[in-house]
């Protein structure tokens, strides 16, 4: 990572910009940026399992929802604001276990490629439909009503004891620090031995199996890790807004990470982060002028990107810059 490439320079500049952003921007914009950054984890989770390991999943929003709902239900049931940091970890654990179970059935069953996408899509849709019909008073976990389409409100923010409670700028920096750590870890992983294993699985499963790698185990592990990352995104999202509803898992929400990761360049983590942030900034601007065309634009982007720049727009841009500036082949 010490090499000077367009990707590394961009990543460095981006993170420096993000560190100083609260000094330049208004409190409102910082709050929005916290939201954008929390959604970056969702894109990263898909970039990890799709870009690196070649597992195509529509279901990252399911784990986003599981993480968010778990955090909401546990923290509201306990009603002790001081230990919500532990609740965060348990929410991630729950999502991880859910991802592991689903991954176990998918990968040990030898399901691959397109069908992983179909199963995860069906799971996501069923989960979203299930949560949206929980409006009645009989749908309660502990003392927390699930609320159907209205979702759950007044979810407390993350705190460690009564020392620090992550709100506003604190939340922003918490998310940013976790993002930098996750980003560096993922970069590190992708250039380590386990990263090469994942790439081997992506490129040729049969050959890797003949070399003695346990393919289903590797796939299940990385799928679980992806699920935990998506859940992290979900927890940050609910603590940011204090609110979660089934629409955050529905078909539109499930479409978004796929579009973002495909368009940015699924094998390039920096491209994914940058594109996600830019997309959310842009979409907030668009939603002022009318958003009924948003889905059409998204669908159109997907088709065009897949046809013309299958590597992804930003990833191709990085390559081009590398060739121009750093004389790489």
């Amino acid at each position: 990572m010490k090499r000077l490439t367009a990707e590394n320079v961009t990543a460095g500049l981006l993170f420096i910009f993000l560190i100083f952003y609260p000094l330049m921007a208004s409190a409102y914009n910082v709050l929005n940026m916290s939201y954008f950054l929390s959604m970056v984890f969702l894109s990263l989770s898909l970039a990890l399992i799709w870009g690196l390991a070649g597992i195509f999943s529509f279901g990252q929003t399911a784990f986003f929802g599981i993480g968010g709902y778990s955090y909401a239900i546990i923290s509201l049931n306990l009603d002790i604001p001081d230990i919500t940091f532990i609740v965060l970890i348990s929410a991630l654990l729950i999502a991880g276990i859910a991802a592991w179970i689903l991954g176990y059935f998918i990968f040990y069953g030898g399901v691959n490629d397109v069908f992983v996408g179909l199963i995860t899509l069906c799971v996501t849709l069923v989960l979203a439909t299930f949560m949206s019909q929980t409006a009645g008073s009989q749908w309660k976990i502990g003392s927390v009503p699930l609320g159907g389409d209205n979702g759950i409100n007044n979810i407390p923010s993350i705190s460690i004891g009564n020392i620090i409670s992550f709100e506003r700028n604190y939340l922003y920096y918490l998310i940013l620090i976790v993002l930098v750590v996750v980003y560096l870890l993922l970069r590190k992983i992708s250039h380590s031995k386990s990263g090469y294993k994942l790439i081997a699985v992506r490129e040729n499963r049969e050959r890797s199996e003949l070399f003695g790698y346990n393919i289903p185990l590797i796939q299940t592990m990385v799928f679980t890790l992806g699920g935990v990352l998506a859940a992290l995104s979900g927890v940050f999202y609910v603590t940011w807004g204090g609110y979660i509803s089934p629409s955050s898992m529905g078909i539109t929400a499930a479409a978004l990470p796929v579009v973002l990761v495909a368009a940015a360049g699924r094998k390039n983590l920096t491209a994914v982060i940058l594109f996600t942030i830019i997309y959310y900034m842009f979409s907030q601007y668009l939603s002022v002028t009318g958003s009924e065309y948003a889905l059409v634009v998204l669908g159109f982007t997907l088709v065009v990107v897949i046809l013309l720049v299958p590597q992804g727009v930003f990833a191709s841009l990085f390559q081009l810059l590398d060739r121009l500036l750093f004389k790489k082949k």
Partner: peptide
């Protein structure tokens, strides 16, 4: 895999 993503784009449109 690419065709899945592309046809999904078509379905959204």
């Amino acid at each position: 895999l690419d065709s899945v993503v592309a046809t999904w784009g078509i379905s959204l449109i």
